[in-house]
Amino acid sequence: MIELVIEPRRRDLGGFEVERVLPWVKRRMVGPFVFFDRMGPVDFAPGLRREADVRPHPHIGLATVTYLFAGEIMHRDSVGSAQPIRPGEVNWMIAGRGITHSERFERARAEGGPLHGIQAWVALPETDEETDPAFHHHGAGELPVLEDDGAWARLIAGRAFGLQAPVRTHSPLFYLHVVLQPGARIALPDDYPERALHVVEGEVEVDGRVFTGGPMLVFAAGKPVLVTARTTTTLMLLGGEPLGPRYIDWNFVSSRPERIAQAKADWRAGRMKLPDLDDQEFIPLPEPATPPNPMS
């Protein structure tokens, strides 16, 4: 049932650390999900350094999805959006042929406070890689919720358990925030060929094995998966239809390495528009440039 257990690797972003799960050397993607970072949990003191902010930077060929358990992030982008995201809400940004955005911790800078959440990247099908960029925000009240015998689940995107989220997606997928009380159970959707779960907090038993907060479990296709909580537990469930190999380099994802090379050249030359309301600084292209890495 369990094909792989992926342990997170810690990365320093200059003001706080994240735990990176995807991509991983032995499993680059799960369905269309090509990137999965857990932010925090961390408790900021007032006066957080501006260096902790994620300055304007570009993306192509993907959709980013930001979801918070605690805290607030201010999003601004090159299609004119300026939207804070708070717990239980979704910021879904479609990069397509190219978008730039920033993520700033303005509330934490002024007041201090917690930050805990997940940022994932979802690859776009080849036919949609060059779609127009767009941004969509959905409040917690817009997202379907399922409750049953100690299990609570919010559908962030896609379809699962007979529910459909309002988030615009480009390929079949599911993405859920789940909270289980001790002894409660949940089964993963069984109608997707690629599925995984991330243990955010707590302790679960799956396939006779016990896992505590941190890892991502990747499951075999076509086999039932039942998860039992041993303590109060928070999970993220995800998966979908595979899209085929993708290349990733810095913030760019594409089915074609030459397209990534063009995006890097465009960013280096200043040909990608900065966010309308945050255009005074940006993250330079990392040097030396590295060749794109194939992902599948």
Results as ranks from 00 to 15, higher is better:
2 I>L: 03
8 P>K: 09
16 F>Y: 13
20 R>Y: 11
23 P>M: 05
26 K>T: 12
26 K>Q: 12
27 R>M: 12
30 V>M: 08
31 G>W: 11
38 R>H: 14
43 D>A: 14
47 G>R: 07
51 E>G: 11
56 P>H: 01
57 H>E: 00
64 T>A: 03
65 V>P: 01
66 T>S: 03
67 Y>A: 00
68 L>N: 01
71 G>C: 05
75 H>I: 00
75 H>C: 00
79 V>Y: 10
79 V>P: 05
81 S>I: 04
85 I>R: 02
86 R>T: 08
86 R>Q: 07
87 P>G: 01
87 P>A: 04
93 M>E: 03
94 I>T: 13
96 G>C: 07
96 G>L: 05
102 S>P: 04
103 E>D: 03
108 A>H: 10
110 A>D: 12
112 G>P: 09
114 P>G: 07
129 E>V: 07
139 G>A: 09
141 G>M: 11
143 L>Q: 03
144 P>Y: 07
147 E>H: 11
152 W>P: 01
153 A>D: 01
156 I>P: 05
156 I>F: 10
160 A>Q: 02
162 G>D: 06
171 S>P: 07
171 S>F: 13
174 F>S: 02
181 Q>L: 14
183 G>I: 06
183 G>W: 09
183 G>P: 06
184 A>R: 03
185 R>P: 06
189 P>H: 04
194 E>G: 03
199 V>D: 02
199 V>L: 10
203 E>K: 12
205 E>P: 10
206 V>D: 00
207 D>E: 11
215 P>A: 06
236 M>L: 15
238 L>S: 06
240 G>W: 14
246 R>G: 09
249 D>K: 15
251 N>M: 11
252 F>N: 04
253 V>Y: 11
266 D>H: 09
268 R>E: 10
278 D>E: 09
278 D>S: 07
280 Q>F: 15
286 P>W: 14
289 A>P: 14
293 N>T: 13
295 M>G: 10
